[in-house]
């Protein structure tokens, strides 16, 4: 059987909220190392990779690997029933048809029990190469969300260009064009707002803003986001889960998006 308790149900709620609009159904693979989910959107343009290590959990027991086929919007509906400071326990039998979800308030005076029906999901799995990226930009996740939202006003495709000086987001559409440049900042009052760029060579790629917009729904998870790019490969937009700022969390939520190219 599988049983795991997370001290903050809100963390799981934020994770599922962040992906439920991009991916409807997904298999959460549970093993002794933790919980993992890999799923593509219906057009196979973007991919979500969620890793929750056992360290994140107050209690984690997995006797045998289990695949939990989950309808994410429905899971999100149940997670919304948790209180802000509730803990959450997930339980499933080896061949069970349901996922049990139990919320407990801090003083344990309120216990809510739910069951979510599991599904058989025939999902395609992709091998993501473990590669080093040419460019890694770390910035405020709220700022990234704002830029993506602002770019969407003008068009559907955003160019992201990076040099040592800064990262430039550009868009053009029927009503005109715009661009926003963020300069690399070494000393800022607020650490969370710093922009740091590690790069080998300048890179510029084009991406569909619709998908970048979906990714930014993960902003409440972490004040910082890491954007990784290399020429002609998918961009990675990554958030730590259950960690603080730039420090490695015990989990991560990464989004991959295939670039747009000249036809």
């Amino acid at each position: 059987m599988f049983e795991a308790t997370l001290q903050k149900a809100s963390t799981l709620k934020k994770v599922i909220e962040a992906i439920k609009d991009l991916v409807t159904d997904g298999n959460i693979e549970v093993s002794e190392t933790g919980m993992n989910l890999q799923a593509m959107d219906s057009s196979h343009v973007s991919l979500v990779s969620l890793v929750l290590h056992t360290d994140m959990f107050e209690h984690f027991r997995c006797d045998r690997n289990v695949t939990l086929g989950i309808n994410l919007p429905n899971f999100a509906k149940i997670l919304k029933c948790s209180g802000n400071d509730d803990s959450v326990t997930l339980k499933a039998q080896d061949d069970g048809e349901n996922l049990a979800i139990v919320f407990e308030s801090e003083g344990q005076e309120r216990v809510s029990e739910f069951e979510l029906k599991l599904m058989d999901i025939d999902a395609e799995s992709l091998g993501i190469p473990d590669q080093d990226y040419n460019t890694n930009v770390k910035m405020s996740s709220a700022e990234f969300q704002r830029i993506v939202r602002d770019m969407t006003v003008l068009g559907d495709t955003c160019s992201i260009g990076c040099t040592k000086e800064g990262v430039k987001f550009s868009v053009s559409g029927d009503l005109g064009q715009g661009n926003i440049t963020l300069r690399q900042t070494n000393s800022v009052d607020k650490e969370e707002e710093a922009v740091t760029i590690e790069m080998d060579e300048p890179v510029e790629l084009n991406f569909a803003l619709r998908y970048l917009g979906f990714f930014t729904k993960a902003s409440p998870l972490c004040p910082r986001v890491t954007i990784s790019m290399s020429p002609d490969v998918p961009i990675v937009v990554a958030y730590n889960v259950g960690g603080e700022k730039d420090t490695e969390g015990a989990g991560s939520l990464s989004f991959y998006l295939a670039p747009k190219i000249d036809e």
Binding site: H44, V45, L126, A208, A258, K260
Partner: peptide, 14 residues
């Protein structure tokens, strides 16, 4: 005009 590529052209199926 920019065309959208698919992830399967970058990542192999497992």
């Amino acid at each position: 005009k920019k065309g959208q590529t698919s992830l399967s052209s970058f990542f192999a199926k497992k």
